[in-house]
Nucleic acid binder design. Structure first.
Lengths: 193, 193
DNA sequence: CGTCTATTTGAATGTACTCAAAAGCGGTGG
DNA sequence: CCACCGCTTTTGAGTACATTCAAATAGACG
């Protein structure tokens, strides 16, 4: 398995030695995926946290009215996975879909306990990771309340300048909390400037 | 110092022994606050993470146009504090204000490192705490995009049924991402049902 | 009682949504 | 190779949700 990317990612936050790297590699599972493949379906038992080793994926959830809401896009070098189900609830509320072909590295929930207790450094790594995610999430929340749809789209473009090659516009609209029709109009308006 | 509440809170996620409890107590600082007191001003150096031992506080940030946005209300038994400044940035972007009189327990940033390395159990505690916060934050994000202002206010009331005794309506409006005028109309509409 | 701020009410406006229809686009099969 | 299908995107018209600005009312505090 090619674990260069994930090891480099971890090493940015904590320094891990060979024994630690080796143990991590021993519990990771490679999971290739194809474009448009439904990798995880909501209601599945959440057995893994996922690291994107190559390609693009997205997570979304389906509300009571049957509408999908995109929660996250994840590119190479990102973690994904339903934290909700990883704490109390055994089943995911989110689905995960491949946007391109690519590869996930799966960290089994069943091995997490041993990983953390044998090597507390990984616990630290995830503590810092969650902390960083929380910061980003908090910013996104404020932006969602504060900015107009147009401003949110412009920010999105700055953050993910190339991702729209892989993603249908309606998913971007969903991620940004607006209708596809309105995103279409918004794009037209921006282009005409 | 009365550290019953914080110890009980921690014990819900990890089992700590006397030595661990004792060390934690030795680094916590009591910080009473009064109603309307500005406890932390944005731009201050973020030296502490705060635990609410009694009373209510709120965190807010002031945008480029000078408008305040309420980010969080915290009641007894909640953590607060600017995570952003606790990672890379030394200065807070949020301000914190007392909504009632009360007491904070401050965990100094300078002691965090020692706490975590001597007792990894606390690192675990914060890992799980951040994870849980992230879940809640993610839900709030989706709700912010999906629900109408009226629905958000109803959810807020269910979640904090008594808090409006302590908080000016304009702060609730800010937290929920709407204008005070519109919240006023919304409340009237709900009452007339 | 007067002052200061928060809340309410009113009217006009803007932002974003809904529903419906047309246009575009990629794939499949004849 | 082209015609058709299914799906996404665009365009249009009408509507609803929420904001802005302004003024009136209510409440808290000295």
């Amino acid at each position: 398995m090619n674990s260069e990317i994930i090891l480099a990612n971890i090493n940015q936050l904590v320094q891990i030695n060979n024994a630690e790297a080796y143990f991590l590699e021993s519990i990771l599972i490679s999971r290739p995926f194809r474009q448009d493949e439904l990798i995880i379906n909501s209601g599945d038992i959440a057995r893994y946290v996922m690291f994107v080793n190559a390609g693009y994926i997205m997570s979304f959830y389906t509300d009571a009215d049957g509408n999908d809401h995109v929660v996250q896009f994840a590119a190479q070098n990102w973690w994904s996975g339903d934290l909700f189900s990883l704490s109390d609830h055994p089943r995911t509320i989110y689905s995960t879909k491949g946007l391109t072909e690519g590869e996930l590295l799966l960290l089994p929930r069943s091995a997490q306990e041993e990983l953390f207790s044998r090597f507390p450094k990984f616990e630290r790594y995830f503590r810092i990771s969650f902390q960083n995610s929380l910061i980003r999430q908090q910013m996104r929340l404020i932006e969602g309340y504060t900015l107009t749809a147009e401003e949110r789209y412009i920010k999105f473009q700055e953050k993910f300048p190339t991702i729209d090659r892989y993603i249908a516009q309606k998913y971007i609209a969903s991620y940004l909390g607006m209708t596809p029709e309105f995103l279409s109009r918004t794009r037209k308006k921006i282009l005409s400037k």
